[in-house]
């Protein structure tokens, strides 16, 4: 790949870096407890939590670093951190 003049890049390239491999703990989302408030989606520093069809939220494990912030802040205690199995 030729270098881009001025050390420049187009958007989208950070996605090549799959930060999910950093994870030690994995957030498990319990949709039965979830009130669909969307707080986790707002506060995830990775922006990797997405709304699925029925309004439930799920993280994209390709990028989730397992920081635990969503689990800590979830008002319904619907997200549990579990040791990652590798």
């Amino acid at each position: 790949m030729a270098l881009a003049i001025g050390c420049r890049a187009k958007p989208g390239k950070s996605r090549d870096n799959k930060t999910g491999s950093w994870r030690v703990f994995k957030p498990i989302f319990n949709h039965e407890k979830c009130s669909q408030c969307g707080l986790c989606q707002t506060i995830c520093p990775e922006g990797c939590i997405h709304e699925e069809e029925e309004g439930f939220l799920n993280p994209d494990y390709t990028y989730c670093k397992g920081c635990g912030l969503c689990s800590e802040e979830c008002p319904s205690e619907a997200i549990e951190m579990k040791q990652e199995e590798k």
Partner: peptide, 11 residues
Amino acid sequence: FDCGHRACGGC
């Protein structure tokens, strides 16, 4: 601001 950035977890 896209996924894949290299901030510490919970930054």
